[in-house]
Design a protein around this nucleic acid. Structure first.
Lengths: 217, 217
DNA sequence: ACCGATTACTGAACGGTGTTCAATATATTT
DNA sequence: AAATATATTGAACACCGTTCAGTAATCGGT
């Protein structure tokens, strides 16, 4: 077979990303197969190299797509949140990781080979997630330099990320923790409090992690 | 060639782990090759399956070895620490990750296939690291239930882990953070303070992360 | 309407991977 | 010394990602 042109290049990329996303969610990064994805899409092996440069390139694109799905989950949780928007953020962070553990861990397990780094387009696609958090943190802390606020927001993302990572990877470190998400939230609240969190309404909280918080404050 | 028996089974395992450790540090998990390790050790392909069940089994053993190296680094830092033992812990955590990024990320990037989970022996080998942290946290907080203390200690490990993960993965999230380790330490101190940290001497601290801390307390 | 030139896609070939398991050569036991 | 048990091999297999000459559809010019 030769030229087909039943899809534009962009449509074809979208097809591979979509099918690849599903495949990655099923089998995980270790067993991910570009050949398999090509077969499912109905195109030949070489097409991946044409479109994405390499299988690594395809995985990068798939992971960027994951970030978009993830960000949308955060927005949904914020939308349907009661007053406690910080809890909603933590909840959204965990939600994606736990409902799609293979997709989530692929994001952090995948390291692109020496030399090339993330295309700018992918950086932009992924920035949305942290942006959401930054905006929420800004709304809840006393005004300071924006640079400091951005740094704190990302540091708090790291706090939640660490807990999430231990849960998904099944690290023994959190095996005995009945409520890792609660613990993450508690740590976030402790740091926010240290930075002058405007307490509004603290009413609804749950989980043992928060009891730590309550006990000591 | 047939039977050789120039090493006991345990010696042979140690050989593969040692050589595999070096190989993993060089090329990273994605390019890790069991065949290559076997060649270096001077044994044939099949030997890995005999000794470790599979290449995944070998990687598990290598990663457990990494935990031991890592724990030793923590102990060294504690030994040569000035008064600030918490900073020493954070420093040790980052030190291993940054001096052996491939080994560190292999620990968390490797997910063992559906079905089998970590052998008890490996769990024990890996527990040493968190044990060190637990002991230090216990020494520095007012006495409470030991269960709560263990959970808090591990949660704090997760806090540091998250920052470390973002650094090693080169995640854009911390690109604008000049001192991620300082940020991790600041978050840990904020949580410790919330739980009644006995402040002893706070004298020597450094880094922007800590300035956040100082400003807000 | 035709015909190069261009483009999109193919898929066999290649070198690599992990796993299996009959064959084999050394140890150990009888 | 013979028989048995054990440790190790390595060819065979089925997969993987990358390459690239080849081919067929489309396009631009006449």
């Amino acid at each position: 077979m030769g030229r087909r042109s039943d899809h534009t290049r962009e449509e074809l990329r979208a097809l591979f990303i979509s099918e690849g996303h599903a495949h990655l969610a099923q089998v995980g990064l270790a067993k991910f197969s570009g050949r398999e994805v090509a077969k499912r899409v109905g195109y030949s092996v070489g097409t991946i190299s044409n479109l994405f440069g390499s299988v690594d390139g395809l995985i990068v694109a798939i992971n960027s797509r994951s970030f978009e799905v993830w960000a949308q989950i955060l927005r949904d949780r914020l939308e349907s949140a009661d007053g406690d928007r910080i809890a909603a953020l933590v909840d959204g962070y965990f939600a994606f990781a736990q409902q799609s553990p293979e997709l989530w861990s692929a994001i952090y397990a995948h390291r692109l080979p020496e030399g090339l780094d993330l295309p700018d387009e992918d950086k932009a696609r992924r920035a949305g997630l942290t942006q959401i958090v930054e905006d929420e943190i800004r709304a809840v802390l006393p005004a300071g330099t924006d640079a400091d606020l951005v740094r704190l927001a990302r540091s708090l993302v790291a706090v939640v990320h660490g807990h999430c990572s231990f849960v998904v990877s099944g690290s023994f470190a959190l095996l005995e923790e009945p409520d890792p998400q609660g613990a993450a939230l508690a740590r976030v609240r402790e740091s926010l409090a240290a930075h002058g969190y405007r307490a509004e309404d603290f009413r609804s909280d749950s989980g043992l992690g928060d009891s730590e918080n309550r006990r000591s404050l």
